[in-house]
């Protein structure tokens, strides 16, 4: 289980996260939702160690990640896979080399085993015959899928996804959502997804944390979210007609 305890993060005099305590359940898709600029990405970057919290700590399976040195963090980091907003694929490498990269760096597999694993991961995200292409030669949705394949290549325990649907059409977004849900179940990972896409909330959210202006306002299940009467949460989640109609339907 991943936990954040009283996390506070400041950039200069600007407090971006304030006293956030949250936990993410293993084997489930955990969502962090909130408007743009609410601090979701900063929270995620604190959880994975890209930002150091000014106060509070991050706990991985009972072990304080924050208290560890960079060197001591490596074993935990090697169990983390992350899907970045833009994919963050290495431009100078082909799709196949991108997926193979974490295996080449950290696994003791032979070349053939690595090739097989790459094939498996690319097939798992429904990508065939693209291994020889460079990231610049594939579409946005394919880039996200390659990034997922790279993230799962080393069989991580934890998967972090920063706005996996940004810049994608609704149909492709749904494909990515389902893929994240399926691989979470299949590989028994703890998945944390940062999103402001309400379709994702409806489709995949098993546990949801709502961040508003750097503070946590809600933590609970999708069913609890729909019933919630927190004004800020309502304004965010049910901003669209479609979501209001969905709530009415769910309540009736």
């Amino acid at each position: 289980m991943i936990e954040g305890r009283s996390i506070t993060k400041r950039f200069g005099s600007n407090t971006v996260l304030e006293d956030i305590t949250c936990s993410f359940e293993p084997g489930k898709v955990n969502l962090i939702i909130g408007a743009s600029g609410s601090g979701k990405t900063v929270l995620m970057k604190c959880l994975v160690g890209l930002f150091e919290p000014d106060e509070g700590e991050v706990i991985y399976d009972g072990q304080s990640f924050t208290a560890l040195s960079h060197k001591e963090r490596k074993p935990i980091q090697q169990e983390i896979g992350m899907l970045f907003q833009g994919g963050a694929l290495f431009d100078s490498m082909t799709v196949k080399q991108n997926v193979m990269f974490p295996l080449s760096m950290f696994s003791k597999m032979s070349y053939k085993e690595r090739v097989d694993r790459v094939e498996f991961c690319l097939n798992r995200v429904n990508l065939v015959n693209v291994g020889h292409l460079y990231p610049a030669e594939i579409s946005g949705g394919m880039k996200k899928r390659v990034a997922i394949a790279r993230a799962i290549a080393n069989q991580p325990k934890y998967l972090f996804c920063d706005e996996p649907n940004s810049g994608l059409d609704p149909k492709t977004s749904l494909v990515i959502d389902r893929l994240i849900e399926e691989i979470t179940e299949e590989f028994k990972m703890t998945t944390i997804v940062n999103t402001h896409d309400m379709n994702t909330v409806v489709e995949t959210g098993e546990k949801i944390i709502f961040i508003y202006k750097g503070k946590k306002w809600f933590e609970g299940s999708a069913a609890e979210l729909i019933k919630s009467d927190i004004k800020e949460l309502e304004e965010f989640v049910f901003a669209s007609k479609m979501m209001r109609a969905f709530r009415q339907q769910a309540q009736s």
């Binding site: 994975v48 963090r73 490596k74 090697q78 833009g86 950290f106």
Partner: peptide, 14 residues
């Protein structure tokens, strides 16, 4: 690589 988060991706891999 920095502005497209490729360096962050390396860091996260350890």
């Amino acid at each position: 690589m920095r502005v497209t988060e490729q360096i962050d991706a390396l860091e996260i891999m350890g």
